[in-house]
């Protein structure tokens, strides 16, 4: 008898995170120690194990999320990115000896955006749910162009358009995101958070920046609540206060454990975001088909060299 596990779900089904801090510590410590003794070679496998563990702790509609990336893919992605990095490193070194040093930042930031979107594409394509792969299309260069243009607008408007930029970049990412062949959609407006941005920006002067946590929370709520997939909608209960507490306490944990508390911080972040994200609506799993587009064969390269951490996984 055929039975769809994801059909006709009760509204507001929560995304669940079954934490296993002990196991996470095990993978993380192995990652750090073996990466040191193997001069970083193991890090590709270590990082994969950590991601795999974290992904399988998450379940959506009671089905586990799975990370299917491999250390080999990351390693080859890294090898592919080395020539570009060497070129950039030499360029940086030579330019740093000349008055043209200021020009270095333009390609550096551009490469940062390319790397971060490339990394998101790789990670999303390695996440599966019910055997169906995630998919993030769109060119990394187009994303970098958009980011560059938005950053330019932010600068010339003294940051007034930052909230527009945040939503526009989210729109780009969601527009190119899909689970299998089914795309995600974003229905938000760019100017929706303009007031919150301005008010929290002004208050930031008197609150030493703490008010910005309320903007960040509002942004995350807006982004999620205006994102739909089939007939389901996401809801977020993140508040400025809870976000402030999460980040402040995480910082304290890292400081007082001299960095050894990083798995605790990762665990807390996952728990926080999954507990504050809800799914409303019904999902017809039979209409979500595997994408015909094949994922890339190698993993993020530039991102790991440039020391970026762009995704939740």
């Amino acid at each position: 008898m055929d039975s769809s596990v994801v059909e006709q779900k009760v509204a507001k089904t929560q995304i669940k995170f079954r934490s296993d801090l002990g196991a996470l510590y095990g993978y993380w410590l192995l990652h750090i120690c073996l990466s040191f003794f193997t001069l970083g070679i193991y890090s590709f496998w270590g990082r994969t194990n950590v991601r795999r563990h974290l992904a399988q702790c998450i379940s959506v509609f009671n089905e586990r999320v799975e990370y299917i990336g491999t250390g080999k893919e990351l390693f080859f992605g890294f090898l592919k990115a080395i020539p570009l990095f060497i070129l950039g490193y030499i360029l940086l070194f030579v330019l740093s000896l000349t008055p043209l040093i200021a020009l270095v930042f333009i390609p550096a930031i551009y490469i940062y955006w390319i790397a971060s979107y490339g990394s998101m594409k790789y990670r999303f394509s390695r996440l599966t749910w019910c055997g169906i792969r995630g998919h993030l299309s769109g060119s990394s260069f187009t994303y970098a162009n958009l980011s560059f243009w938005r950053a330019f607008l932010d600068v010339i408007t003294f940051g007034i358009l930052i909230s527009h930029t945040d939503i526009e970049k989210w729109r780009f990412t969601i527009k190119h995101s899909a689970i299998g062949d089914t795309k995600l959609k974003f229905h938000g407006e760019n100017d929706a958070l303009f007031g919150t941005h301005i008010i929290t920006g002004i208050l930031a002067i008197f609150t030493l920046g703490i008010s910005r946590f309320w903007y960040m929370a509002a942004l995350k709520r807006y982004q999620l609540e205006h994102t739909t997939f089939q007939n389901i909608q996401l809801k977020s209960t993140i508040t400025g206060g809870s976000l402030w507490w999460l980040m402040t306490s995480n910082l304290c944990i890292l400081i007082f454990t001299l960095g050894l508390g990083r798995p605790i911080v990762i665990n807390r972040n996952f728990r926080f975001y999954t507990e504050h994200t809800h799914i409303v609506g019904e999902l017809d799993g039979s209409k979500i088909l595997q994408s015909k587009e094949l994922p890339s064969k190698t993993g993020e390269g530039l991102e790991s060299i440039l020391d970026l951490d762009t995704g939740i996984l």
Binding site: S35, F36, G40, I82, F85, D307
Partner: peptide, 10 residues
Amino acid sequence: EVILGDIEEA
């Protein structure tokens, strides 16, 4: 930087 770019401790 190349081989241990994102593992601060190592």
